[in-house]
Write a protein that binds this DNA or RNA. Sequence first.
DNA 1: CTGAAAGCGCTTACAG
DNA 2: CTGAAAGCGCTTACAG
Lengths: 338, 338
Amino acid sequence: MSRTQDMRKGATIQEVAQEANVSKSTVSLVLQGSDLIRSETAARVLEAARKLGYVYNRGAADLRRKGSRTIGVLINDLMNPFFAELLVGLERRLVDADYSVLMAHTGESLERQDKVLLTMREHNAAGIALCPVPGTSAALAKTLDAWGVPLVVIVRPIGPGNYDFAGYDAAQGLRLSTHHLIAAGHRRIAFLGGRPGPVYEQRLRGYQDALREGGIAFSRDLVFESGPTRREAFEQMRKVLDARPEIRAAVCYNDVVAFGALAALVERGLRAGADFALVGFDNVLYSAHSNPPLSTIDVRPEALGRHAAELLIARIENPGAPRQEFIAMPEFVQRQSG
Amino acid sequence: MSRTQDMRKGATIQEVAQEANVSKSTVSLVLQGSDLIRSETAARVLEAARKLGYVYNRGAADLRRKGSRTIGVLINDLMNPFFAELLVGLERRLVDADYSVLMAHTGESLERQDKVLLTMREHNAAGIALCPVPGTSAALAKTLDAWGVPLVVIVRPIGPGNYDFAGYDAAQGLRLSTHHLIAAGHRRIAFLGGRPGPVYEQRLRGYQDALREGGIAFSRDLVFESGPTRREAFEQMRKVLDARPEIRAAVCYNDVVAFGALAALVERGLRAGADFALVGFDNVLYSAHSNPPLSTIDVRPEALGRHAAELLIARIENPGAPRQEFIAMPEFVQRQSG
DNA sequence: CTGAAAGCGCTTACAG
DNA sequence: CTGAAAGCGCTTACAG
């Protein structure tokens, strides 16, 4: 490849102009695909650019234009396949619309969230997609509001503020899973996993609604919290099985919790679906192949990511438009765990 | 919050300078934490910046400096928890070193990979971390080489080229898993999943080495390919169980394949660990809680991501240094599936 | 210790 | 259809 010689690092529009015997305005226009330029000239410019190994400098263009096509994406828990799948849908839609994605994993750290949010502002992000860390204060909504950068919040609202929102009807989801177990004849149904917070309350409410509708009294001592990891859910479920052997059915906070519970069932020699009925929430890919396959509530994680992206893009293109929400309606998926 | 009034959008260094009665050079110096500036002056500048809601513009600074602190990260399969965990480690280390991450999910599309790679150059990325799409041509290595942007390739090499590499000894990994099954008394051990390619050959070789060391003849009709998804592995395993009931043990291409195989076992009423011995590869988080928990080969996905980040950072800081590799040594993890 | 000036690589009216 | 000029928000020698 002797052409490598010509590819001096960092040719600029100016050098391309020289090579093609035109001004840099012309080169800029050609690069933007303007039809103001004669096609013959355009061809000459393009050839010169190729020859010099020219690479467009988005930073410079963004500075001049005072805009950018990068979107900041913050994910709070990538270890949870729900968010990984959501991110796939979000990123795909954004890239298809010609945006670049500045991604940050906040773990569950509020500090990290604040830090990367600032960085994204410094990068002049055209918009932000935020899966907030649990415990994010409502003050953040105000701050982001003041910044005036288009924002879509995902799954977990962060209090009043001027942002779009993409999520699902969690109450309805848990209503469905609870109803399913009631219809299957269960009357003592546990609510398993999760930690108190806005999202949690919603789900708990759906559970309570279904119980009421089924004529079953709600009882605090059937709700068991746990962190959002398989391990924590596993340990919690273990305790439940040991201390409360009369419980034979549970709706779960999410699929990851259900997987942990499944593992505890196995350890105790119990068969999910036969000895104990378990229903998840999310319908992550894996739930179709767990052992046994998990009955769950489908909220279509990947599609949710796509919808969030669409909300954000719409907002960027039309900042003055009224606030929008996308709320996915969950569906029950019958498999074998319950 | 009446201060919101003062936070005019987009205050510049120039306006801060005016507010503080200094020149913009001084402001710039203060922002960089230079100790050339009297602390009294610095305090005045900082106060002015705060008052105006000043936000540093990285794009402008990068343009002037001709550098950037963003890293392009390309992941080929985020649906596979191995890569999600790897990304977590990678991102964390990068952000801790004050880099921003431009992330792209290439799915398994070479086209997408080419597209985002170009975008990342246009963003003037300081470095690139690439988990290449299977089938990436060696020509890409040359191209990236010519670009001269620091590059770390992860898990799957892309042919000769001047890049650092982070991966694991896959041959050794499969040697370990195969040895384990041999030691457990198995002589007819299948190699399950994956598609031919460089990474595949390595693993197959480890499998063959272990067989040879165990005095067992290698037989082509014990290797079964499948795509890298649970579903495809599930379907392949189903066929194996039906057509070749004499097979009672298998080493898997990776954990996702093992999970698919586990599901097929269940469907056929076979117990992993008792009726059929199965060993995975990767040790993704979930493998500790699958049913039954998966015996597997630990390659520490998250730590691998961290090491890849460290290689890249070192390269950026010292472009002339000799090429480096990080090769993790896999370890066998005994659980219950085999 | 601080300021004036040049310049990073683009885009965009404006003129011709 | 094309070019000359100004300017985006910074940093960095250079002078004082």
